[in-house]
């Protein structure tokens, strides 16, 4: 696609996304504003994972850890009386980043399948630690008594939360776009294709991968902080391995390494779930069939059907 056409298309999509809640309100379908927010949050989470998997070439199977941590930090702080998003969200990012540094630094000693499994192990450790803590609400999770406050904006209003999420998603997509073309991003591209060569050229391979892992994981934490607000709950299921699997499936479905792979995957999967859920009790059966078809017939994901990989 030509650059100019692409920019026009992106601007149109962004505009449509901005006015969407107004249209829904006019139609009296306010419920769908929350649903749309959820889509955007998962789009953000999947995009952040795509940065690690698709740009950094590291198949991480523990993204739920960071997603869930972001949610739990916000919920914890709420219990402790910290309601301001201006404090709680940066703290959530900080905690997630810290966890990502530790987990990444250890996990990156391994590679391939073993990297998949060790990231999974760490995520499961966090899952079991949190559900056994009574202060974290155990199996029930930790409810939020209210949404974070983001003065001067009113997050209690669904539309404002939607726009906040949209801005953060747009900002992250924009930033990741810049990163992918920067020196760092090009170094990642080299790493993905030939790590041996990067090492021989004298690149600090370990540090490059770690930074990529931490950046992606931290954005995953941001998505978690948003989801806690949208759900009104930090739930243990956010930390469970099937959540990591779901996010990974979104990325693969959308297109590994494509700029909008995470967005396309998240919207497709959750959209299918919603639509099929209206017609059948067994929506996951049909989703499974769709995913299977994608795996067999378009293994590059939906985004590969058009457009170039980054």
């Amino acid at each position: 696609m030509k650059r100019s056409r692409r920019i026009v298309l992106e601007a149109c999509l962004l505009l449509a996304a901005i006015v969407l809640p107004l249209i829904l309100q006019a139609l009296g379908e306010d419920f769908y504003i929350s649903f749309a927010t959820r889509l955007l949050i998962f789009a953000l989470a999947a995009t952040s994972l795509n940065f690690i998997v698709g740009y950094g070439g590291m198949v991480a199977f523990g993204h739920a850890a960071f997603f869930g941590l972001g949610a739990y930090v916000v919920a914890f702080l709420m219990v402790a009386g910290v309601t301001s998003a201006w404090i709680a969200w940066p703290v959530a990012l900080g905690v997630t980043a810290l966890a990502a540094i530790v987990i990444g630094a250890i996990s990156l000693r391994t590679r391939g399948v073993y990297f998949i499994m060790i990231t999974l192990a760490f995520a499961q450790m966090i899952y079991y630690s949190i559900i056994s803590l009574q202060v974290a609400g155990g199996d029930d999770g930790l409810p939020l008594i209210q949404r974070s406050t983001l003065s001067p904006f009113d997050l209690a209003d669904d539309t404002t939360l939607y726009w906040t999420t949209l801005s953060l998603l747009a900002a992250c997509l924009h930033a990741l776009q810049h990163i992918s073309h920067s020196r760092f991003g090009r170094a990642l591209a080299g790493l993905r294709q030939n790590e041996v060569r990067m090492e021989a050229l004298g690149y600090p391979v370990f540090r490059l991968k770690l930074v990529c892992f931490v950046v992606g994981s931290t954005i995953g934490g941001l998505a978690g902080a948003l989801l806690a607000n949208q759900n009104g709950l930090a739930s243990p299921s956010l930390l469970y391995w099937t959540q990591s699997g779901m996010l990974l499936v979104m990325v693969i479905l959308g297109g590994v390494g494509y700029r909008y792979g995470g967005v396309v995957g998240a919207i497709t999967l959750l959209g299918l779930e919603e639509v099929l859920g209206r017609f059948t009790e067994y929506s996951h059966f049909f989703i499974g069939l769709v995913l299977l078809a994608i795996a067999l017939f378009s293994p590059g994901g939906l985004a590969s059907l058009r457009g170039q990989r980054q």
């Binding site: 059966f285 069939l289 769709v290 293994p299």
Partner: peptide, 15 residues
């Protein structure tokens, strides 16, 4: 690719 295997077999779990 391992990723495609993850996608397909995760789909099988759902099914």
């Amino acid at each position: 690719d391992h990723l495609v295997q993850v996608l397909a077999t995760f789909a099988l779990i759902l099914i």
